[in-house]
Amino acid sequence: MPGAITGKTVVVVGGSRGIGAEFVRQFVAKGNRVIAGCRQPSQAKELAALEGVELAEVDITSEQSVEAFAASVQQLTPHADYVINNAGVYGRRVGFKDVTAQDMLFAFTTNAIGPLLVTKALHKAGVLGGQQPTVIATVTSKMGSVDDNTSGGSYAYRASKAAVNIVNKSLSIDLAPNNCIATLLHPGYVMTDMTGGAGLIDAQTSVAGMIGVLESGVELQGAWHAWDGKVIPW
């Protein structure tokens, strides 16, 4: 689906802050309708004030909440042109000696299982693909690249992102017959709450770059691109 993304319906999951909120702002600024999934919509007052934004509650760690969210999206629109799976967590910043099973499960539940459940529920609700294509873009991290791991550590976060990468690859195969494109986006090292304000680029630059990838006409199906257009090795 190359070309400027405008006049579309975009679902942004994890849209209340950081990268997600910036996705909402930039998609609206480009003339799109945005349905933003948030844990606590009542606290997303800035986004609610934007013309073209509708908020829907979702906790992607709860299958029941995800099903209710998909039903809400279905009531708001018959078709989503783009779905941005952005919700994610880092978890405790511990190394090999301190990582626990709970650390691993916490990261996996949100980062790997959550995007799968969201995509499954939206597909079941009938708002993905069909006569019109849907691009499902999952925001992952280069830290989930086996090839790129030269420093070790970050077991839970790395493993959960590697897991969602393979989830996306399977989605790209299984949903292709339904006119869906499943792709991965790496936002870069972004200055957000998750990074404690550290980073190399700001959220505006990161999101503009990722939207640019979606608009560029490069092959998206089953692919993995960084915000600057570079292909990330698996």
Rank of each mutant, 00 (worst) to 15 (best):
N85D: 13
N149P: 14
A29T: 04
A208P: 11
L117Y: 04
A223Q: 15
T9S: 12
G217H: 00
F108R: 08
Q75A: 06
V167E: 04
T134R: 02
A101H: 02
A112C: 13
S170I: 12
S62K: 06
K45Y: 01
I166Q: 14
V190A: 12
A162C: 09
H225M: 01
V99F: 11
S170N: 09
A36I: 01
L116D: 00
G152K: 04
K124D: 14
W227L: 08
D228M: 05
D103G: 00
N165H: 10
E46A: 13
E215N: 06
L76G: 06
A70L: 12
G31K: 09
V66Y: 13
L175W: 06
D148R: 14
L50H: 07
N149R: 14
C38E: 06
G31M: 03
D202M: 04
E67C: 09
L200A: 14
C180G: 09
V213F: 03
L76K: 12
I201K: 05
F27E: 13
V10I: 15
R17T: 02
D147N: 14
C38L: 07
G126C: 07
I60N: 00
T100W: 03
Q43C: 01
A80P: 02
Y90F: 15
A162M: 10
C38T: 15
G126N: 05
V11Q: 12
G88L: 02
T9F: 06
V99K: 10
V139W: 09
A68Y: 03
I60R: 01
A36D: 00
F108Y: 15
R158D: 01
G3R: 05
S141G: 05
L76E: 02
I201E: 07
L200G: 12
V207C: 00
I201D: 05
R92K: 12
V73R: 00
E54P: 03
T6I: 05
P133C: 04
V231R: 10
N32G: 02
G229R: 03
I113K: 15
R158E: 05
G91I: 01
N86T: 11
L116V: 13
V127Q: 10
V11E: 01
Q75D: 05
Q74N: 03
W224Y: 15
H79T: 09
T6V: 08
A203Q: 13
L220Q: 12
D147L: 13
Y82I: 09
V89K: 07
I19S: 04
R25C: 08
G212D: 11
M191W: 06
T61E: 14
S172P: 01
